[in-house]
Write a protein that binds this DNA or RNA. Structure first.
Lengths: 230, 230
DNA sequence: TCAAAAGTGTTCCGAATACACCCATGA
DNA sequence: TCATGGGTGTATTCGGAACACTTTTGA
């Protein structure tokens, strides 16, 4: 037991994990095994230990609950509504993560305890536990705005990708069609993509060239005042 | 005394309060009266009560420590470094606020206990307590980027202002000179400023026309997809 | 009458947009 | 040979940037 002079809220983290499908932006949800909200879907998360930062806690929870190890992870917002958890005062620091769906699609189901993990399209979300509907709103808005002025979209794609995949990514996230020629002109003019001597395989049409995002070059340009914008 | 089955970090809020001078962006600091960091400067802040959100706590602390009542207030980031407070594990939710300096300039000194409050230019910051130097970095960067694509600059000006004041504001925050004619063209073309039938007073040169920001119109345009950008 | 800031238009350049056809591949 | 997506260039439009002089006011 731990005793304090003044009452303290419990501190948790929650993670909104985004992944990209051929045609959909998805998030990973956990079906809650216990009350409160048993049977409801929620974002993976849990309590913050005394010897870890909230970021470390978020990474740990992600690993424990979904088997996902390394990914783009960024603090989203801290939710502190007094009644957000029926068990008592719980303040939650929310994070959002971007992963390459293909890497985790099958693996995710297999992890830890009896809880079920499942990817849901952001357009077909089930009813969420706690204040997670609000968390989701903040997360999806953050992603939509951030993807336009920071090259984080690449985190959702495999390391080697085609320009069409990249364009599709933006079309899905921004929910808006883009012109193929203009898109290519723009993205290539930034000089952040490395053209690989490799081609797409196993498609029944002309194979597309593969590209890679040059993170090092981006960091260099960024520190010189360059700003990514799409 | 309050006891829990598992240990819990203490939860605090800290506030970075920005105000605008004739020629400088300033922040309000409190001189710490007690250890740790006695005599050091720090952002105003304090513990979160069990019946208040972190936002409510931030507003309360602001009121208690500085006499500032209503202002623009937005969550900044949550700092959870394990050793950020030598007294033990303390997680802090930081907020930043924008106020009209003129309203508080004299008043601020007068408030609450023995601690001294003082406005510092963001270019001449003293050594800060805890991890507040890091908090400050995040705050100033947030302000600089947010001021460009959201009309929050107005929160730093009196309700009625001249276009030159507004331009000066952007020049100070963005740290970059702007062209007078282009600035006016741009800002007026957004149709968010109301031209008042009033003029600047007590200046020894041609008096400037006064304008007011039309928040209602902005909200309307924003929901129609308009985005402020400077 | 001087100093100090207010106010005002036009030209130029670069970036964003709109737009349509041929190419390569596997089935 | 057909269906499918890959890959490419130009003309037009719009917004951003550069730029200098006259006006008003109080000291």
């Amino acid at each position: 037991m731990y005793t304090y002079e003044y009452p303290r809220p419990a501190l948790t983290v929650d993670c909104v994990i985004f992944g990209l499908d051929e045609s959909d932006l998805k998030v990973l949800l956990i079906e809650r095994a216990h009350e409160p909200f048993a049977g409801c879907w929620a974002f993976p998360g849990g309590f913050v230990d005394m010897d870890e930062t909230t970021e470390t806690a978020a990474k740990r929870e992600l690993w424990e609950e979904t088997g996902i190890k390394s990914m783009f992870l960024e603090q989203l917002y801290t939710f502190s509504g007094v009644d957000r958890d029926p068990r008592g005062r719980v303040v939650s620091v929310a994070y959002y993560a971007l992963v390459q769906l293909a890497d985790y699609r099958s693996e995710v189901q297999a992890s830890s305890d009896a809880k079920k993990a499942e990817w849901f399209s952001v357009n077909e979300m089930p009813k969420l536990a706690f204040d997670h509907a609000e968390v989701f709103e903040v997360a999806i808005n953050r992603l939509k705005s951030k993807v336009r002025y920071q090259p984080i979209g690449f985190e959702l794609l495999p390391e080697k990708f085609t320009l069409s995949q990249l364009q599709k990514l933006y079309e899905i996230i921004l929910n808006k069609e883009l012109d193929k020629r203009n898109f290519r002109k723009k993205i290539l003019s930034m000089d952040l993509l490395v053209e690989l001597p490799e081609w797409q395989k196993g498609v029944s049409h002309r194979a597309a060239k593969l590209y890679q995002f040059d993170k090092v070059k981006y960091k260099a340009l960024e520190s010189k005042g360059f700003s990514f914008e799409l």
